[in-house]
Amino acid sequence: MESSFITQEIGSFRKPQYLSGKFHSVEGTEEYAKLCQKATVETLETFDQAGLQNVGVGGEMFRWEMYEHFAKRVSNIEFYGLVRSFDNRYYKKGSVMGELKRTGPFHLQELEYLLKLTQKPLKVPITGAYTMMEWSFNEHYRSRRELAMKFAELIQEEIADLQEAWKRSGRKEKLEIQIDEPAATTHPSEMDIVVDSMNASLDKFKGIEFTLHVCYSKDYRILYDRIPEMGFHGYNLEYANRDSLSVNNKIREGYEDLRHFNSINETLSEKRFIGLGVTDVHIDTIESEELIEKRIEYALGILQDPKLLRINPDCGLRTRSREVGYRKLLNMVEATKAVDKKI
């Protein structure tokens, strides 16, 4: 029997030590490719054991981090050092010093390897134009809009390369691309730039399923309000982080704003789906199957149609150990199956 829900990951998974310990020193070499491939195989095995259906790109083993991977493959971005994200977690924030140009594809090597390796459904995450702009220091372009639109041009080139590779592989199903825009709602007054740069990245493509991933937004409603203008088929969002760990809550606060999504979605002739974040990627607590079931059922109670729900963690699991990441995914899959049986 076909399951009602697709389970998927969002993107990153913790790299094995043999890869993370050497990543920067071997990046771009043959050894890098071999280590990334080995780690991808192992991560896919972990995903298989957990029972995950869509395996993304095998945990983004070819990428150090979502911003840096992109920025390092673009000319005229300089890195002066690391900047804190939270606690003792840092990322390399680049400074845009001149006209931006792709120095080569960002994710082609990864996708081509995945296509050879597995027949499972894949989803390629690409960091979005607005987030790339927001997370860069701009020392060159006249405005934030101009910089975001420039990044959108580069993303368009990247998607064209990925689509070509997909066609060459002969896969029958649609290529799935997830645009990662964690910064999307950080400046409510700039939502026009967010929407315009997203649409500029995607507009020219047909036959691709596009989803948007946003996380840790202060207010998703400003995103939901713009859904009718955006060319995405679905939205993979973080909810578990804002929800209680208590199983028995009658009101699940983390998922309440799905009502607003639903009110927008009901006005659309072509409905969008939600990739529902059901496990918090910033805590080691393994949410029980029962808790995850309650979360899925609560969301289903609002959206009514199982076809409008996919099930995923809040965000990439790279901040957790591989063991914790696996156990979170396993409970997520088991809980999804349990809900599936009930409907």
């Binding site: 900047v83 804190r84 994200s85 939270f86 990322y91 924030k93 927001e134 997370w135 964690p182 910064a183 950080t186 400046h187 840790y216 937004s217 202060k218 982080n241 804002r242 918090d280 910033h282």
Partner: peptide, 13 residues
């Protein structure tokens, strides 16, 4: 409590 975005940045608290 949970992690929240600090202001309008890629920094969290």
């Amino acid at each position: 409590g949970p992690l929240r975005r600090y202001g309008e940045t890629n920094t969290f608290y």
